[in-house]
Design a protein around this nucleic acid. Structure first.
Length: 501
RNA sequence: GGGUGGUUAGCUCAGCCGGUAGAGCAGCGGACUUUUAAUCCGUUGGUCGCGAGUUCGAAUCUCGCACCACCUACCA
């Protein structure tokens, strides 16, 4: 891991050799990478602006435009050629004629390669097949591409290469570009949603002396000058609640968390979380807010609240179900009667049949949770809030007033996956201190995911935190859902991969 | 971590029962002044993922390793 970087590989590929020779010739003729070309027009803007114009009207008007982009297609026909340029907005065709640009330039153009970055100035016309085209008065090569692009028709299909060389994926695949544009719009929509409701966006530390706020294994790092061990954050929760203590009564943060755990189609070591906290609210309010948020973002970004994910249609308009774990188990497995699901012995027997590991210390809530996860979680396709989680597994959530063995907490499930997790916050400093102590004890006993005792967080609570509700939403998973992406790697620009070679 | 499948030219892919590798695109040379995956003629290009083994002979069969994908387990 700490080995020195390998020297860059010398690529002996013949195509690259030829392109290097072309670049060398360009260098000998002057500036090979000119930086004085100015673009005034984007492809999509031109298509939109002249959508209704016939060539009879367009060509005589001699509308001057300056476009630039990557050459994706090239068709040479003796004394005239067509090229297709791609810019950030889309594609536009360019017509290069010996009569218009001169024999020398056209001859040079014939030796430019797919992938080269070009600038074209000229006038608009429509070809006989009615395609809007720039007739070049001048055409320049701005940046030579040394590496050949994937095949123009099939594009890049190799999953590994799409992830490792995202830049090539983005050049070749419109659908990939669209996913990341949507991701950006979703994050923007969420940001606007909270700002419009008077929330303050904040940034809290990514490097924590004590990792907290979730049950997960952290990454460890070291600060040299301070000579101290630091952890990449597994959640921002404890810092955001310190801010609520400080008087920022409505805060949110959209940022990265890091968890040193397995990698899968649903897990990347770094992932983006939205967390938000609002004082003088409870978890019921959060559920309402979450429904509104997801509906509004879907409407804004997709234009609809009917979402198809991997062949399953989700209705985000309908009020989301709200069920306790026992109710959910009963609803999807009617053979488990509600009365029985409240009996410890019944649950132990049921779990034994499923061969689920249980501990003598597991109480009613824990047993229900285990049966729920085993039998029911994957069946929650339509948006469903599951409420009342056991206090044992919710060390930061407020205990229920009637039954302190459960908490005022919910998790939102869609397509059988957890999308959000929220609760009325525990603001009793003495209760919090006891729960930390229990977690610390579990950690000593070998539970690597158990929390540390965070004395400063308890000290903050001792100044008094207003009753508060807080929630976290996994942005990557939400984006997967809204873009119909099967893998989390499809919605993360540069997913974590094993080292090449 | 466990299971299944994959890895052949820059890219997309063929390659049968083992006989030492092929197409299309891209590239190079030529023809072509409205093409659009342009077309037509010619042509260069390979450590068949890596390493062993079986065999007269391995891209092909066997074993090991690496990486990727999918399923599964933990999690968000």
């Amino acid at each position: 891991m700490t080995e020195p970087q390998q020297p860059p590989q010398v690529d002996t590929n013949k195509i690259i050799e030829e392109r290097r020779a072309k670049l060398q010739a360009l260098r000998e003729n002057g500036q090979a990478f000119p930086n004085d070309a100015r673009r005034t027009d984007l492809a999509a803007d031109l298509h939109a602006a002249y959508a209704g114009k016939e060539n009879a009207e367009l060509e005589p008007a001699a509308i001057k435009v300056a476009v630039a982009g990557r050459m994706m297609l090239k068709r040479v026909m003796g004394k005239a050629s067509f090229a297709t340029l791609q810019d950030m907005s889309g594609r536009i065709q360019v017509y290069v004629q010996t009569d218009a640009v001169g024999a020398e330039v056209h001859e040079a153009f014939k030796h430019w390669d797919l992938g080269d970055i070009l600038a074209v100035e000229g006038t608009l016309f429509r070809t006989k097949t009615n395609e809007l085209t720039v007739k070049a008065q001048s055409i320049r090569l701005l940046a030579k591409s040394l590496r050949p692009l994937p095949e123009k028709f099939h594009g890049l299909t190799d999953q590994e290469q799409k992830y490792r060389q995202r830049y090539v994926d983005l050049i070749m695949n419109t659908e990939s570009r669209a996913v990341f544009v949507k991701r950006s719009q979703i994050v923007q929509g969420i940001r606007e949603f909270f700002v419009a409701r008077g929330y303050l966006e904040v940034e809290t530390p990514m490097m924590h002396p004590i990792p907290g706020g979730a049950a997960a294994r952290p990454f460890v790092t070291h600060h040299n000058a301070l000579d101290m061990q630091l952890y990449l954050r597994i959640a921002p929760e404890l810092y955001l609640k310190r801010l609520v203590v400080g008087g920022f009564e409505k805060v949110f943060e959209i940022n990265r968390n890091f968890r040193n755990e397995g990698i899968s189609t649903r897990h990347n070591p770094e992932f983006t979380m939205l967390e938000f906290y609002e004082a003088y609210r409870d978890y019921h309010y959060l559920m309402d807010l979450t429904e509104t948020l997801i509906r509004e973002v879907a409407r804004k970004v997709l234009g609809t609240t009917t979402v198809t994910y991997q062949g399953t249609t989700l209705d985000l308009e309908r009020k989301f179900d709200r069920l306790t774990m026992a109710q959910a188990i009963h609803q999807y497995h009617p053979e488990h009667a509600l009365d029985d699901l409240a009996k410890v012995d019944y649950l132990r027997a049921a779990l034994a049949r499923h061969e689920v590991e249980v501990f003598p210390t597991d109480g009613l809530g824990m047993l229900q949770l285990k049966l729920f996860e085993q039998t029911t979680e994957e069946k929650l396709i339509q948006p469903t809030f599951i409420i009342a989680h056991p206090t044992d597994v919710s060390p930061l959530a407020r205990a229920n007033d009637r039954d302190p063995s459960i908490t005022d907490r919910f998790e939102l499930f869609m397509t059988g996956r957890e999308i959000a997790n929220g609760f009325s916050e525990l603001n009793d400093p003495e209760d919090q201190a006891e729960r930390f102590a229990a977690q610390a004890k579990a950690k000593e006993a070998g539970d690597e995911e158990a929390m540390y005792y965070d004395a400063d967080y308890v000290r903050a609570l001792e100044y008094g935190m207003p009753p508060t509700a807080g929630e976290g939403i996994g942005i990557d998973r939400l984006v997967m859902l809204l873009t119909d992406s099967p893998s989390i790697r499809d919605v993360i620009l540069f997913p974590q991969m094993r080292q090449e070679d």
